[in-house]
Design a protein around this nucleic acid. Structure first.
Lengths: 248, 248
DNA sequence: CGTTTTTATGCGTGTTTGTGCGATAAAGTT
DNA sequence: AACTTTATCGCACAAACACGCATAAAAACG
């Protein structure tokens, strides 16, 4: 087996499972540990994966998990403020969950009169502080990880809703691959959310740009607004500016 | 499992639940206590969490609900502890909202394996901290006052549920008038909840005893358990002891 | 073609890292 | 005060690693 073939094999494993163990690769590829180590080192040099004691991890896996550190709070507040501009009186809005959405909700103008559907209990509680906002919480199985409701019941209920705007957080966004996710249920959920809103705004801190995960939610064309904490002319956004997408 | 993966897992737990117990992590990750402790120590060194006796806390710890300002909290805790005795493995439980129920949920045993339906987002979030509890949040219009979902949709969904036990807070209870309430919607809601559970437990701080409000939810006979913070032989309860009612 | 250079791989050896165990100490609980 | 749970420390051991060296195949060159 050629070295290049091995590298490809390793990358496939990584993309599939988000991780590989050195020892597994030794067995699967039938080469010495040293060879695998050298392979991994070379892939690290090419910036394709992340090496740890015992094996290697996918780059996207890595960045998709330390995102929930609420340390990017400033960024999320900035995003929230921008997102508020999209909301007008009388609108029907559908939101997902997550800390970014929560920061957005906290920054809505007090007098706003609108209808909000949400799958996030915490968002619902926050929205309840506004007197003129009607809040409908979409019920179903409750996900311990992402703190939103999910599952068939949620999707059924979503199918009955017609919203003007859908606001969702992101696991990953990529100019070619579009919106992607790691978990099947969340993937299905996001698809359903997209389907019931006229327009969709994606709230996305910059570190989640240019990442593609296993499951595709939608192509980039299905998104109306991309909201990041970056300046409009920041170079990280250039690939997105080329698309038909409003960037805030 | 790789160390880095464990660290990510721990951080996810922390960001989700604001806290982790060392003993839980030992079980979940199937490694020795020492390993978990070292993991936590390393995460502390990276400034990612606070370590405390028994586990660790999120750096940005903030409970969605400020415990200390809860009215008559001690009584509610006492009630919560008593209510926990009613819960057994495998049960299907339906709960309402309110601070008393919340104190109850916080005192459930860690390993409990059960299914909980609830109309309260805050209760759902709290329940999500238990790994073996399946949480179903019943969705609908969200009430700004009582912080629970209500309305036709909720009642429809309730009608499809069959629960072993329903736990609800009280506005008022009276030995002759039974359970009563002031608001039509809440009244309807409680009737629907009662209807779908085999047994019902009413959590009630003593000051709400012997009060009757405008709208009747049910006669006292429809209730299986009355849980107050008082001793079993307290004289305020004598009128209730005469009824067919288990008093805790 | 033969010789040299480069590249890829494996082996041996010593080092580092990760983990669990036991004893002891400290912190909570009743 | 007695008891239980959690922490800490030193140690042991295995797995993973880095480095130098040897070897052989592949590529380059005259």
């Amino acid at each position: 087996m050629l070295k290049k073939e091995r590298h490809d094999f390793i990358m496939r494993q990584i993309n599939l499972h988000n991780r590989v163990l050195t020892s597994d690769l030794v067995q699967l590829l039938n080469v010495s540990e040293d060879t695998i180590r050298r392979d991994l080192q070379e892939l690290v040099d090419e910036n394709l994966l992340y090496k740890v004691h015992g094996g290697a991890l996918s780059k996207s896996y890595h960045s998709s998990f330390d995102d929930s550190t609420v340390y990017a709070r400033d960024s999320k507040i900035a995003i929230g403020k921008k997102a508020v501009q999209l909301i007008k009186d009388g609108m029907v809005v559908l939101t997902g969950g997550g800390t970014t959405i929560l920061e957005f909700v906290k920054r809505l103008p007090q007098g706003l009169s609108a209808t909000f559907f949400t799958i996030s209990p915490l968002v619902a509680v926050e929205l309840a502080k506004y007197n003129n906002i009607e809040v409908i919480l979409i019920g179903g199985l409750f996900s311990k990880n992402s703190q939103v409701t999910y599952g068939g019941q949620v999707i059924t209920q979503l199918s009955e809703i017609k919203a003007d705007l859908c606001l969702m957080g992101t696991s990953a966004i990529h100019p070619d691959e579009g919106l992607t996710d790691t978990y099947w249920e969340i993937n299905q959920l996001k698809k359903a959310m997209l389907a019931c809103a006229k327009k969709t705004a994606v709230l996305c801190i910059s570190e989640k740009l240019d990442i593609a995960l296993r499951l595709r939610v939608c192509p980039i064309e299905s998104i109306s607004y991309l909201i990041t904490e970056l300046d409009l002319d920041h170079e990280s956004l250039s690939r997105y500016r080329e698309k038909e997408l409003n960037i805030l």
